[in-house]
């Protein structure tokens, strides 16, 4: 479903992603972990066709996307929903229009149907009735949930969540993970989730990839990562540091 092959990306002369390769089968959910600044967000942007890699290939649903034009990419993008780490909400629209936007652009539903879908998804993320609030009136956690709603409202077959629970309280966090899990099962979606909440990730993800300084240091299943002999992986998993 998603295949990343030998992806390398430079910032100036420095490689920020080095020969990254892995494959996510259809219907699987990948947890993408690693220390801050290791290139997780950048990798998801490359998979979403927002950034072109300097080397390597990215296959989404059987199509190689790194050489497609912006207009050809449009068709691929209908298959992908993305939740941005920095929210990226449209600040010239209110909350309701932000969430309705993907549906309106798709143009399949009438306004009444769109409004009821927006209402329903807001209820699911525990923010009922905030359609007419402006984006700048929301707290960080509220924005996070609104971006979540906007990312999933079209029910795309591929979902990329970049830190979906950052800044949320534990109860709301676990609700979001439950929601992720439900979407995963209902829609048979293929997903990539970036998070530092390992417990949450364990509840939904079947595959794990760990990046350190732009390199894949681990790729495998939950059982494999728990028993990984690699030091950086073990330390990250247990939350230990070198200095004692």
């Amino acid at each position: 479903m998603i295949r990343v092959a030998h992806v390398t990306k430079y910032r100036g002369r420095q490689a920020v992603l080095k020969d990254v390769s892995f494959e996510i089968p259809a219907g699987a959910s990948l947890a993408l972990i690693g220390p801050g600044g290791c290139g997780k967000t950048l990798l998801t942007k490359i998979i979403g066709g927002l950034v072109r890699p300097d080397q390597g290939e990215v296959w989404v649903d059987g199509q190689e996307i790194t050489r497609l034009s912006e207009i050809e990419l449009t068709r691929v993008r209908f298959k992908i929903g993305m939740l941005f780490q920095n929210y990226a909400l449209f600040d010239f629209m209110d909350v309701g229009d932000n969430i309705a936007f993907p549906l309106r652009q798709e143009g399949k539903l009438d306004e009444e149907e769109i409004a009821s879908q927006v209402e329903a998804i807001l209820k699911e993320v525990d923010l009922p009735g905030i359609e007419r609030l402006q984006v700048n009136e929301l707290s960080g956690g509220m924005k996070r949930r609104v971006t979540f709603a906007r990312a999933v409202i079209r029910r795309p077959p591929i979902l990329v969540y970049d830190d979906p629970t950052a800044g949320l309280d534990p109860v709301t966090s676990s609700k979001i993970f439950i929601l992720l899990d439900r979407l995963q099962r209902q829609g048979a979606t293929t997903s990539i989730t970036i998070s530092h909440d390992l417990v949450g990730l364990r509840s939904i993800c079947t595959k794990w990839a760990m990046l350190v300084a732009g390199e894949v240091v681990f790729f495998g299943t939950s059982e494999e990562i728990e028993r990984s002999p690699t030091k950086v992986v073990r330390q990250f998993w247990m939350g230990e540091s070198d200095e004692v």
């Binding site: 942007k45 979403g48 066709g49 927002l50 912006e70 207009i71 990419l73 449009t74 068709r75 993008r77 209908f78 992908i80 929903g81 993305m82 941005f84 920095n86 929210y87 990226a88 909400l89 449209f90 600040d91 936007f101 993907p102 652009q105």
Partner: peptide, 14 residues
């Protein structure tokens, strides 16, 4: 800079 343009692109809007 707030990635709203990227957000448009991911929603398949040019």
């Amino acid at each position: 800079v707030t990635e709203q343009i990227d957000a448009l692109r991911t929603l398949a809007i040019d």
